[in-house]
Amino acid sequence: MEVRTIKVFTTVDNINLHTQVVDMSMTYGQQFGPTYLDGADVTKIKPHNSHEGKTFYVLPNDDTLRVEAFEYYHTTDPSFLGRYMSALNHTKKWKYPQVNGLTSIKWADNNCYLATALLTLQQIELKFNPPALQDAYYRARAGEAANFCALILAYCNKTVGELGDVRETMSYLFQHANLDSCKRVLNVVCKTCGQQQTTLKGVEAVMYMGTLSYEQFKKGVQIPCTCGKQATKYLVQQESPFVMMSAPPAQYELKHGTFTCASEYTGNYQCGHYKHITSKETLYCIDGALLTKSSEYKGPITDVFYKENSYTTTIK
């Protein structure tokens, strides 16, 4: 009895394709271990004539594949690729409408935090270190965002349907971005203890939790000093293409032309909904596939993004 075979390709990165001759009487799992086709788990399936010449994702289970996976995804987590594939199996079914010149995501599976993050990423200057993220990001900007969303979920250790947080998501993504040249110098002034300067680099240099107003941050924000008295913390120097200011959701007025974009969060910790506000020729609110415009805006804002380049204080 002759062994019926077909020729397929296996890959971990969709760049390096490895030619395989597979036995049609055995499952993919018996031949390769966990195997995925377009995100779908085909591990328990036997090869079919229609699979001839198709590319299958496999887990990096030998040295060659491990090197290829690390170079593309910059992670050695053995569960990463499987999590990416199972997320992709959902995100490829989502709709990605162009809204006001940006790629958004039609609401499904509690994905409003991903839509808000995706919209924000198209408006701030950011370059990702893992080629996987950078490639998928370019495709997302062009309207094909399924891979990018699935990668975000995998890097953030999230599953489809789980509630997510924009600030946490951005923080994970910033860790995989090139923020080497970003720098922030802060000064804390206390009447009792004097003053202390701190220099922050990388992710810490672009994120701040405690106030939404970048102007206020430049002037000074009140913080408790270690001595128990009130101290003032203010920005001395900022070198970065953008800054992200966050605070627990509270009524906040966004003035046209003073910011790049913002995240609105309605609801409580267990259950809520994100919308995205962007400042173009007027203010726009993007909620999944829905767009509304207004000249002014007041609502429960939790993150505001500002364009920056270089700032030095005039406070002496």
Rank of each mutant, 00 (worst) to 15 (best):
T313Y: 14
G161N: 10
L290P: 00
M170C: 08
S25F: 13
P78A: 10
E253M: 11
M24W: 07
V8K: 04
D77H: 06
N16S: 08
M209P: 03
I315V: 15
A231C: 08
V304W: 00
N178Q: 11
V12S: 06
W107Y: 05
H51A: 07
T292V: 09
C193Q: 04
K95Q: 15
D135F: 08
C227P: 01
Q30F: 08
P78N: 10
V160T: 02
S263M: 07
E144V: 06
T116M: 07
K183F: 11
T159I: 08
T116F: 05
N100D: 10
H276G: 02
Q20R: 13
N110D: 04
V185Y: 03
E308K: 04
N147W: 06
W107Q: 01
R83I: 06
G53H: 12
Y274W: 05
M207Y: 07
G39C: 14
G299K: 01
D23P: 10
E296C: 14
Y311Q: 12
V3Y: 12
F80V: 03
T11R: 04
T232M: 13
D13R: 03
K316N: 15
S263W: 00
D63P: 08
T10S: 09
T91E: 05
E204K: 14
K93C: 12
L59H: 15
E308S: 09
A140C: 13
E2R: 11
L17G: 05
L119E: 03
F217I: 14
M24E: 11
Y73M: 05
D38N: 11
D180Y: 10
D303Y: 06
P97R: 09
A115F: 05
D41S: 12
N129F: 04
V188S: 07
S310M: 15
H176W: 15
C285H: 11
S263P: 01
Q175W: 04
Q251R: 10
C271G: 15
G39P: 04
A146L: 02
C190D: 01
T278G: 08
I45Y: 12
T11Y: 06
N268E: 15
T313H: 15
L151I: 02
V221Y: 08
E215L: 03
L37S: 12
T232C: 07
V304D: 00
R139F: 08
K219T: 12
K127M: 10
S79N: 11
S263E: 00
M209V: 15
P60L: 04
Q196K: 12
T91K: 05
I301K: 00
L114N: 06
E296G: 11
G39A: 15
A87C: 09
V221K: 04
N309C: 11
A140V: 13
C149E: 04
E125H: 07
E144M: 08
Y274T: 00
S240A: 05
T43F: 09
T232S: 06
L200P: 01
Q122G: 03
Y36H: 06
N49M: 12
Y269K: 14
K44G: 14
F9I: 09
V99N: 08
I315N: 15
A40G: 13
V99C: 10
W107M: 05
H273P: 00
K255S: 08
R184W: 03
F70E: 11
A108T: 07
Q216C: 09
N147C: 12
M245K: 00
G272S: 00
H74C: 07
A231Q: 03
M24D: 11
Q197T: 15
M85C: 06
T91R: 05
N100I: 07
G33W: 04
Q98W: 09
S294L: 15
T19W: 11
E253F: 07
T198V: 14
D303K: 00
Q123W: 03
Q237E: 11
S171V: 13
E239L: 09
T266E: 10
S50K: 12
F242W: 08
V236N: 03
K54S: 13
V160R: 05
S171R: 14
L65N: 08
A136K: 02
G210C: 02
E2A: 12
Y252I: 13
T232E: 06
G161W: 04
K54P: 04
I15E: 08
P47R: 04
T312L: 14
C193F: 03
F174H: 02
Y311R: 09
Q122W: 04
